[in-house]
Structures are given as C-alpha cells and as structure tokens.
C-alpha cells in the first residue's frame, strides 16, 4: 500500500527489472499521479493492471504501449473509470489519461508513446469504487549500433519534421 498525499515519496516494489528490485517512485511522477488521478491512496497493482511494452526499443520515438485491466467486468457497478500513463525521465511526466465508461465493454487501450531515454514508465487505473492501482515497467531505449543511425530521439524527430516540411 502506498501513502497518498502530494509531494510524498512512496516505496513501491516492482519486479519488471532485475536491476531495480525496489523502486522509489520519483517525486515528479508521484505529483503527476496525484494531479491526474486525484489525492487518494494508491495501491500496487499486482495482477490488476496488465501493462505491456517492449523491453527494448530501438528509438524512443514511437513505442507501443498497452494498458489493460483484463479482469474488470465493466458493469455499471464495477468498472474502470480511467487509465493513465506517466514517465519518469521525459521532459514532462504526463503521457495520457483515458476516461472509460461501462459502454467501453473492455478496459484496455493501446497507443504509441515517446521516451527520451531508458526509464521506468508507469500505468495507473481507477476503479468505480475509487480504488487506484499503479504499476511500472522498465524499458531500455536502445540507441546503439545496428539499431539506428539516429543517436537522439528528439534529434530524429527534428530530422523527420524537416523531411515532412521539405526542408
């Protein structure tokens, strides 16, 4: 169980990455969680959230990510009201917030996100009874040989923009 309250640090255990068996949620991420999910008690997700990303990405430009609460019945009485994603080391911690209704039928979204570097990415879910779960996933953003001739994701983005503009 994680203590709520803006600005506090919470000790939170993840097993996604062997080198980081224990993880302190960074203040910037915790504040973002409180901002987008409300000042409430956050619980470690356990198996409730399925957060799927590749373990490695060649570049951080467009990384597929799926957030799901597979066991939610998505009924009026028991459904997921929102799903969230946050990053630790991007220029801003906010990624996206998705607002669901029982009419979604399935508590799952898939999107593509930007990652400035290797880091933990966080997913959150709020249930209709107010329960909030969070989980984390460590992703290595691979910029090395055979992987890309682009050594900074943002530089690559700029190159791409110039191409789009014919510059």
């Amino acid at each position: 169980m994680l203590a709520g309250g803006a600005g506090s640090l919470a000790l939170y255990t993840v097993t996604a990455h062997p080198a980081h068996a224990e993880l302190l949620i960074p203040d910037v991420v915790f504040k973002a969680m409180v901002d987008r999910m409300g000042d409430r008690t956050f619980s470690e997700s356990g198996d409730n959230i399925a957060f799927t990303l590749p373990t490695h990405a060649e570049t951080g430009l467009s990384v597929p990510a799926t957030v799901s609460v597979p066991n939610s019945p998505m009924t009026q009485a028991d459904h997921i009201t929102s799903l969230h994603m946050f990053t630790e080391l991007n220029p801003q911690p906010y990624v996206a917030d998705y607002y669901l209704t029982p009419r979604c039928g399935k508590a799952e979204i898939t999107t593509r996100i930007r990652l400035a570097r290797s880091q933990f990415v966080y997913a959150g879910a709020i249930r209709s009874d107010g329960t909030a779960w969070i989980t984390a996933f460590y992703i290595t953003v691979n910029l090395g040989a055979c992987a890309a001739d682009i050594f900074l994701p943002d530089a690559a983005e700029a190159v791409r923009r110039r191409q789009l503009e014919g510059g």
């Binding site: 917030d97 998705y98 009419r103 799952e108 979204i109 593509r112």
Partner: peptide
C-alpha cells in the same frame, strides 16, 4: 455513440507524432 460520450482522453506531449489509439466499445 449516438450522442452519448462513451470514451475520451487527455493527451500530453509524450504521445507520439501521428497519434494512434486502439480502444473498445459495446
């Protein structure tokens, strides 16, 4: 869906160029 909001989202700067999204509805 026929005038009723079934799904919505707030996106921030870490969503990739040309945003892609898969979601579900009944």
């Amino acid at each position: 869906y026929n005038g009723e909001m079934v799904f919505s989202a707030d996106w921030h700067v870490s969503i990739s160029t040309n945003p892609y999204l898969i979601f579900y509805t009944v």
